[in-house]
Design a protein around this nucleic acid. Structure first.
Lengths: 161, 161
DNA sequence: CTCCTTGTTTTGACATTCAAAATATTGATA
DNA sequence: TATCAATATTTTGAATGTCAAAACAAGGAG
């Protein structure tokens, strides 16, 4: 491990260490004090263009449907999510963000947007291309690793969005 | 947020998410199957040069002492940590990694190093520069937010290592 | 109509976390 | 020295997040 790699490693550790706490605190002070990072993640999984089923959403989030049932239970109670049975196939449950849920989603996204903006704004056009290539390359590698694990456990097809 | 920024955002989220899952799976299939990511994090908090107290370690990890007590309980039972009362001040409890704990710590470090190595090895020089810049920018952004939170809560000085 | 399949919920278990109460020890002081 | 406040840790009770497996409900093929 050379100096460059060591620095990258340290940066990654630092980011991972602080990001969760920061997000959690940002949430707990905002307008939507009553949802956790995990719950926000669930809102993201449902997405703005709702009408997705429980299983679809669970797959997106990489959790079991049982876990999602419990999470949705709470989010419905808190008024962030709407849930109703499909009229065509009454086994299916459709979930959707309420107005409040969508608002929370957008507020949280602002945090991400701010970060990305900060990231790309100092870069000129060629550098932006390089950034895109770099991230694409890393994403490809890590997806590869990820798929390898999935391959060993074919039952868990966590198709992360 | 334009298309370019949206793609960057999606790539970042995807990478973030998959690195976490990869780490978790790597642990659960490695030699030390019986410890979770959180437990490994606790081992990291204790560090190789042991003899730290419960409170010191809890502060490093950003958790309460009560939470740490429970975690250490399990890690002692599993043979990763040694715990004994300080002979000078018998209120104090000193914890330390066992041989097995140190081995696990080092193995996990290797995993990180290998991951970073594989991540950057396909990148050319300009890509590496952009990567470094980008991570530094993210770390700065997060640290910034993080500091803002610390400033509002001076009592909780999470001095992350 | 029966039975298999599919989508969801329920249940039981465990990990992680906090806040607050309980416990043990120290050190200062009346 | 006996007492008491402060300090370090553990214990307790509660919430959240998670899974696997069982239970339930509905659809669809014969």
């Amino acid at each position: 491990m050379n100096d460059y790699e060591k620095t990258i490693n340290d940066l990654l550790l630092d980011i991972y260490d602080k990001i969760l706490v920061t997000e959690e605190k940002a949430l707990s002070r905002g307008i939507f004090k009553d949802i956790s990072v995990a719950e926000m993640h669930t809102l993201e999984g449902i997405g703005l263009y709702g009408n997705r089923t429980m299983s679809e959403t669970a797959t997106t989030l990489g959790i079991t449907t049982g876990t999602l049932t419990v999470a949705i239970e709470r989010l419905v109670r808190k008024g962030y999510v709407d849930r109703r049975r499909d009229t065509e196939d009454r086994r299916v449950v459709r979930i959707e963000l309420t107005k409040k849920g969508k608002l929370a989603y957008r507020m949280h996204n602002k945090f991400h947007n701010l970060l990305v903006d900060r990231l790309v704004s100092p870069l000129d056009e060629p550098q932006r291309d390089v950034l895109m290539q770099t991230l694409a390359c890393i994403a490809e590698f890590i997806t590869d690793q990820y798929q390898r694990y999935i391959a060993e456990n074919p039952e868990e097809e966590h198709k992360h969005a």
